[in-house]
């Protein structure tokens, strides 16, 4: 793409985390990926029982400890100090990943390099020569959670769309993404491609189509939702 692009309104990471948090119902079991997705934890409404899973072996993870109360035995998947909430449970790694693979996790929120309009996710490697590969639990989370939410900027630092027709980076999972939360808009992955669920500020379907170079379905509130407009469930994706 060339010439002038209209960037449109961009909301902050914290604002986006609040948008995601508002879509997570009470009672959900949620895994937040390393990096920006951890901001969602701070945005979850107080008083609601939403259980956080960390793949290194804990349900009921709480926030960072007070100064002086760091416990080297109690860390999250990002290897940061955390705390346990009443009702917490510990388990070994095979059980932890059985929770993902077995379809017991309700939601995971992951970062992305690219998401394709078929719901393919690329978030673990750019494939750059000389880079040291590291995958961690990304591939298990991508195919395991009932709803896979991606939290990302819409554009790379050089202005390329992270929503693409087909991923050029190595895949993390095939057809696994449910919804993409970006700083410009929220997109559902549907059988007809990306559907704009919510556009922030002055972003429009047309401006988003220009930024991404993709044909987009209008599924914003006020548009007439058709049968295929909603996000696919895991069963449909599989």
């Amino acid at each position: 793409m060339s010439a002038q692009r209209t960037a449109g309104t961009r909301i902050s990471r914290d604002e986006l985390a609040a948008v995601i948090a508002a879509d997570i119902p009470e009672g959900s079991i949620v895994n937040l990926g390393i990096g920006a997705p951890t901001l969602v934890a701070n945005a979850l409404p107080e008083g609601l029982e939403i259980i956080l899973h960390t793949e290194n072996g804990m349900l009921g993870m709480g926030p960072a400890p007070e100064p002086g109360r760091i416990d080297p035995d109690l860390i999250n998947a990002g290897k940061q100090a955390v705390t346990e909430l009443p009702g917490a449970a510990y388990f070994h790694h095979a059980d932890s990943f059985a929770m993902m693979r077995g379809g017991h996790l309700d939601v995971c929120v992951l970062g992305a390099f690219q998401v394709s309009e078929h719901g393919d996710l690329a978030n673990w490697s750019t494939g750059a020569p000389g880079a040291i590969p590291a995958v961690g639990g990304a591939m298990d989370l991508a195919i395991g959670a009932k709803s896979v939410y991606v939290m990302t900027d819409l554009l790379t630092k050089t202005g390329e769309s992270k929503l693409v027709a087909s991923c050029s980076y190595p895949l993390t999972g095939v057809g696994c993404v449910t919804r993409v939360y970006t700083d410009h808009a929220v997109f559902d992955v549907t059988p007809d491609g990306f559907a704009v669920r919510q556009a922030f500020g002055d972003n429009t379907i047309d401006s988003l189509a220009e930024l991404t170079g993709l044909a987009l379905v209008d599924a914003t509130q006020g548009s007439s939702p058709d049968a295929s407009g909603g996000a696919r469930t895991k069963e449909e994706v599989r």
């Binding site: 693979r101 995958v135 591939m139 395991g144 190595p170 895949l171």
Partner: peptide, 30 residues
């Protein structure tokens, strides 16, 4: 390099006497 859940399950399988198993993790990836 092994996806973390496959790493854990491959270790578990060894201890449990499982000859091999089919995993959905990593399908379609390099």
């Amino acid at each position: 390099l092994v996806p973390q859940g496959n790493l854990a399950e491959r270790i578990r399988a060894a201890g449990a006497g499982i000859g091999a198993f089919f995993s959905p993790t990593g399908v379609g990836t390099e």
